[in-house]
Design a protein around this nucleic acid. Structure first.
Lengths: 232, 232
DNA sequence: CGCAAAGCAAGAGCACTGCTCTCGAATTTG
DNA sequence: CAAATTCGAGAGCAGTGCTCTTGCTTTGCG
């Protein structure tokens, strides 16, 4: 039954994996532009048309790679967060930042695939969202934990948020912990944006000839953002 | 002389412009992926090989479009900065931010071309740098002007910078005004990164279903960054 | 003015791409 | 065992970037 089903299905699952692996390999070499279905098939010793039994189109293959990339990054980020759990809130935030940057540096083309320009004219399918939100959720979770522990420093400046932002942060808070104040969500979003803004700028060359190498600026700003959130 | 030279050269310049215009039009519709030399040539009523007299390759056409995009954005940003000159330092910063966001929203594919993933495996040629630095320079100039006017609020936190960062900020300051303190350059770079991080996240869909529409978050964070720099 | 030199568009052609369709062979299911 | 499904192979279509050769036009110099 399950063994008989695996006969074909297992071969299918394995080939699907091999296709993605080979595609990832090509991606790392030539980027999303250079990803050729025919080349993938050639490398796997099959003919190009056979590949369409596994992925209906090039875009579908890319979507699969996008989901995998989001998941791979989130796996590492969550693991780093857990590993730093006992070292304090600021250490968790620093661990997440370092992990994001290291992963992006190690897999620049995969990073570009998910955080760079959307590749064709296609919309990111719903399936990518769940994986994409894991990193910002991990960041917000630090803010929540610090808030619940009463460890957050008093913010410098607390004007009331505009109504739209109050609604949006409340809806976000509902996913993390309902009692997080809106201001804290906003500060988390700023830190999240700053983190990926830095990694993107560094990877895409905007810091060239000025803040490159960006290690010092990165570490300094990570601490700045921890201050902004109010982490001890 | 100059009139005879224009006979051919003017035709050449005009055709070069028409090619770029048509390419920009295609870019706006189908993105960088969909930019086809053959389609551009077809639309202009010429044969594809003739196009190679004007641009040696597709990448060279893209590079030309990149430089134009940087310049177009910088033109608008500098104009907005000048227009807000009398309204104060914070108003200048806000004007720049609004202009960047508006331009990016109006020209998403051109924005993606310059601030998204580097398109092929190609390095941004030196020629792009001059145009690319105009926006960050405009931002740093606000910090410089506010500093020289003695209008900056005292920063919250002033640990000495690490040596690498001191060197880098000193080298940047040399292009703006030598007496700007390193901390101020760093804060300007944070604000600059945040600005483009927000625009990129918004345009590429990372705020979808959470901070979208991002108007309120954007305006709020712009003010937050003005606070960070210390603008009155 | 006339003629060589340079600039130009056109066309054919190469090697490649994503994708479709059909056809036999293998495998799973009833 | 037979029917139904799944699969790989191959041919083929329309399109791509890019090269090279062939003539024509414009330019600049003697």
């Amino acid at each position: 039954m399950s063994a008989s089903r695996t006969a074909r299905e297992r071969a299918r699952a394995e080939l699907t994996r091999e296709i993605k692996d080979e595609a990832r390999r090509q991606l790392a070499v030539s980027g999303a532009q250079g990803l050729s279905l025919r080349a993938v098939a050639r490398e796997l010793g099959m003919v190009s048309s056979a590949l369409y039994r596994y992925f209906a189109s090039r875009d579908e293959l890319l979507t699969a790679l996008i989901i995998d990339a989001y998941s791979a990054l989130a796996d590492e980020v969550e693991a780093a967060d857990r590993a730093a759990a006992t070292a304090g809130f600021r250490a968790r935030w620093q661990a997440i930042c370092r992990t994001v940057r290291a992963w992006a540096t190690a897999h620049p083309h995969e990073y570009a695939l998910v955080y760079g320009s959307p590749v064709p004219g296609y919309e990111a399918p719903e399936a990518t969202i769940a994986s994409a939100t894991r990193v910002p959720i991990a960041i917000m979770a630090i803010a929540r934990d610090a808030h619940e522990a009463g460890a957050l420093a008093a913010p410098a400046h607390e004007d009331p948020l505009p109504p739209v932002l109050t609604d949006q942060t409340a809806r976000i808070a509902a996913f993390i912990a309902p009692d997080i104040p809106g201001h804290l969500i906003v500060r988390g979003a700023v830190a999240w944006t700053q983190l990926f803004g830095m990694v993107t700028f560094e990877l895409f060359g905007q810091y060239a000839n000025a803040l490159d190498p960006a290690d010092a600026f990165f570490d300094h700003t990570v601490d700045r953002m921890a201050d902004l959130i109010g982490l001890p």
